[in-house]
Design a protein around this nucleic acid. Structure first.
Length: 203
DNA sequence: AACTCGGGGCA
DNA sequence: TGCCCAGAGTT
């Protein structure tokens, strides 16, 4: 297990988790954590967020990239939270996925971490690594979610999820996986397959 | 399935 | 420089 195998985003409640996860799309957790303290100080609730103009919001988050989409989506999402959910973050999939800027992955993060619902969020790392290892069967993310939930004991979901992400980032890279230092190489479907093809030469 | 949004981190 | 970042929405 990697030393900091826990959620790398900083948050204190479901609302902060939702916003931080929305901001994290195609951005590093580090850059998100850099902007959230100031953001949540000004806008700790959906109601407070709506007091910001889109320009003010964009200014607070622009260092993470994709800030125009994210700013617009966050304000629209907060409007829905206030008007349809009493200012609370809904704890069910349909409510979450109807929020603009919230897709399958972000909804799963909130469901699992804020509401202890059975969900594993499959991002690019989890998808790639679990399919390479053979924990899932490379169809689509929903299939991968189900494979993971079937192949991993529930009390290990969170740890396994974080492990898959960190492993993907640090070892099992998309282009050049560091199979030489991977402790799972010998039982990795991709690695052993490659080894067969190249005639036992892989390092 | 492919494309767009997009500035910053890091080698 | 070039590649990548705990994706989502549209065409």
């Amino acid at each position: 297990m990697y030393p900091d195998a826990r959620c790398a985003l900083n948050f204190r409640n479901p609302f902060e988790l939702l916003i931080a996860t929305m901001l994290a799309a195609q951005a590093t957790d580090k850059s998100v954590n850099r902007v959230t303290p100031a953001l949540f100080a000004k806008a700790p609730t959906p109601e407070a967020m709506l007091l910001l103009t889109q320009e003010e919001l964009e200014d607070l988050i622009k260092s993470i990239g994709l800030y125009r989409n994210k700013g617009r989506n966050i304000l629209a999402a907060c409007r829905i939270l206030v008007e349809k959910h009493g200012g609370q973050v809904p704890g069910y999939r349909e409510g979450l996925e109807k929020l603009p800027g919230v897709g399958r992955k972000t909804a799963n993060v909130v469901l699992a971490e804020a509401f202890q619902e059975p969900a594993i969020a499959v991002d690019t790392h989890v998808f790639r690594v679990s399919n390479r290892l053979g924990l899932a069967q490379a169809k689509d993310v929903v299939k991968t979610e189900q494979d993971l939930m079937n192949n991993i004991p529930r009390d290990l979901w969170a740890k396994a999820h974080h492990w898959l992400i960190f492993h993907g980032r640090q070892v099992c890279h998309a282009r050049k996986p560091a199979c030489g230092v991977c402790r799972l190489a010998e039982c990795c479907r991709e690695y052993t397959g490659l080894k067969r093809e190249t005639g036992e030469e892989t390092e």
